[in-house]
Amino acid sequence: MSRVRAQLAWMVVLAALVAAWQAYVRLRGVPQYVLPAPTDVGRTLWDERGPLASAGGVTAREMLAGFALALGFGVAAAIALHASATVRRAVYPLLVASQSVPVVAIAPILVIYLGFGLAPKLVIVALVCFFPVTVAALDGFRSVDPEHVRVMRTLRASRTAIFRRVELPWALPSMFTGMRVAASYAAVAALFAEYAGSGSGLGDAMREGTAQYDAPLVGAAVVVLAGLALALFGAVTLIERLTIPWSRRVE
């Protein structure tokens, strides 16, 4: 019982924050276009549920597809970097350096190249999510206890067998950590991409809301976006618990 109560502590904190926000806006008479009250945001969420849902759907697709791309390419890149010291020396420093280029800066260029459709959004989300996935997977591969590899070699294991039966499962917990980081970046990346040029999605709704001083609409879009980010993060965590239950039992 007390454990359940401790697990729900965040709800109390959240409720207190929302209540304080509501009281501040109402008691000070803050105009809605400066800071909307939580009730205003809530009302807009309800009234605009149709458009918000379809905008959220667009953004969710961009996040998911970009994240999936990043996962595929990230793990493949990590395997290549792990398998060959030459590739690692030649590519890894460049990969790290490439992270100093802000995605905000290249988003407009990608829109020019790839148009206003889905393609530039996927690329931008994938670019942002790629790095944490790759680094975490590579770290996972490289942290394998060499003693395990030595013993496996005496147990008739080929290079591929060692990878499949030792290195890959060994790296999974680390990969999931990278995926959780990537999942939390995906929402912001999708938003950037939509800001850079788009006719749909939550980013577009927020731009429109800002232009019309419709602060409750902006607030409602933020709530939906936060929900999407949390959902992706939660999904990754859930999949982790289901696929590698052993990782919490070791050490």
Binding site: D145, E147, H148, R150, V151, M152, T154, L155, R156, A157, S158, A161, R165, V166, P169, I244, W246, S247, R249, V250
Partner: peptide
């Protein structure tokens, strides 16, 4: 075949799965 001091069992495999890993290899 080498058996080290620390058993180095793989936690993602059950006991028989660990014992039979060489046959799988």
């Amino acid at each position: 075949a080498l058996m080290p001091q620390s058993d180095l069992l793989l936690p993602w495999r059950d006991a028989l799965g660990n014992a039979s890993v060489a046959l799988e290899n």
